[in-house]
Amino acid sequence: MTKFKFRHIAAAVATAALTLSSAAFAAEKPTVVLVHGAFAESSSWNGVAANLLQQGYPVVAVANPLRSLTADADYVASLVKQTSGPVVLVGHSYGGAVISNAVQDNTNVSALVYVAAFAPEQGETVLELSGRYPGSTLGPTLAAPVLLKDGSKDLYIQQDKFAAQFAADVPAAEAVLMAATQRPVTELALTEAAGQPAWHTVPSWAIYGTADKNIPAVAMKFMAQRAKAKKIVEVPGASHVVMTSHPDKVAALIVEAATATSK
């Protein structure tokens, strides 16, 4: 065999080994499950999802039903149970309460990431937590409830108030679309008491904006510290949809959580 052929074969073997190693590394990355909150929908995660996908992370942006905390948590838990490998659960706003209650008996959840989110203790409600500290201006921006046949009520934000209340740092045209495509949440979901939260046993991370008008920054800091978050990131001037206006910062924290818990 000539030296040229030997070198050619050796290079091919090395390339194949590197490719297999890279594929194995990618396969070991956890699936990131993104759970939106009230008045939002799955596309609010588009920037974050695109960033994570480029880095080789499997991503699922869940269509959170927004019907009740128990039902929504059960729905996410079912999805997690049928996801192979480790999972990083990420929740925005009310979605934080959902991920806190969605781990249940799933042992594959390695980390929780709270994005401008609620992290309730057992017995607490999203509504109570939102008003525990001054600063939320959500109440006056809500439209008249939509009464449903079962007696429950769907809540929306008035479209002409949506941008200023919910997405002040998002381009105007995008905020208009977000207002039009917002998903309603039931009153029950916001007033239902939380169960035993997963953050007692699963490591957590948190990120939020200092200009959030839905959940006061001081409330989110309190909840993150109470959950003993490994890292708390405050984004100066960011609105309630920090994952839309600052997707790279949110994605970076998710990657940090995924990396820290994959060892």
Results as ranks from 00 to 15, higher is better:
Ala211Gly: 05
Val33Asp: 03
Ile232Tyr: 04
Val250Gly: 03
Thr201Val: 06
Leu148Lys: 13
Ile254Gly: 08
Phe6Ala: 15
Leu155Tyr: 05
Ala164Arg: 08
Ala49Ile: 01
Gly195Gln: 09
Val235Thr: 07
Thr107Lys: 14
Ala251Leu: 07
Glu256Ser: 07
Ser44Cys: 09
Trp205Ser: 02
Leu20His: 09
Leu127Cys: 04
Leu66Gly: 06
Ala50Asn: 12
Glu121Trp: 09
Arg132Ala: 15
Glu124Ile: 01
Gln159Cys: 00
Gly91Pro: 05
Ala63Trp: 08
Gly91Thr: 00
Thr181Trp: 03
Gly195Arg: 04
Ala12Phe: 14
Leu127His: 14
Ser44Ile: 03
Leu127Ser: 13
Ala175Thr: 07
Thr210Met: 06
Val218Glu: 14
Leu18Gln: 10
Trp205Asp: 02
Gly96Pro: 06
Trp199Ser: 00
Leu53Ile: 15
Arg67His: 11
Pro197His: 01
Thr244Lys: 12
Ala189Arg: 04
Leu253Ile: 10
Glu187Arg: 12
Thr31Pro: 04
Lys263Ser: 13
Val185Pro: 00
Tyr133Ala: 14
Val242Trp: 00
Val90Tyr: 01
Pro184Gln: 08
Ala251Gln: 07
Leu142Thr: 03
Glu124Val: 01
Gly139Phe: 11
Gly237Ser: 12
Val80Gly: 07
Thr137Ala: 11
Thr141Asp: 03
Arg226Val: 09
Lys249Thr: 14
Arg67Gln: 13
Thr125Asp: 09
Ala49Thr: 11
Val80Asp: 07
Val176Phe: 01
Leu142Tyr: 01
His240Tyr: 11
Thr83Val: 12
Thr201Ala: 08
Tyr156Asp: 04
Tyr75Glu: 07
Val115Ser: 02
Val115Lys: 01
Thr70Cys: 03
Ala238Trp: 06
Phe4Val: 15
Val255Thr: 15
Leu89Gly: 00
Leu66Thr: 01
Ser43Glu: 13
Ala260Ser: 13
Ala63Pro: 10
Glu28Met: 13
Ala63Cys: 07
Val235His: 06
Val235Arg: 07
Val126Met: 15
Leu79Asn: 07
Asp105Thr: 13
Arg132Gln: 15
Val13Met: 14
Glu234Thr: 12
Ser110Asp: 09
Gly139Cys: 00
Tyr94Arg: 02
Leu147Val: 13
Leu66Ser: 01
Val170Thr: 09
Leu18Glu: 10
Thr15His: 10
Arg226Asp: 12
Ala117Lys: 04
Thr186Cys: 04
Ala229Pro: 05
Pro140Trp: 03
Arg132Pro: 02
Leu79Ile: 15
Thr125Arg: 11
Asp150Thr: 01
Ala102Cys: 05
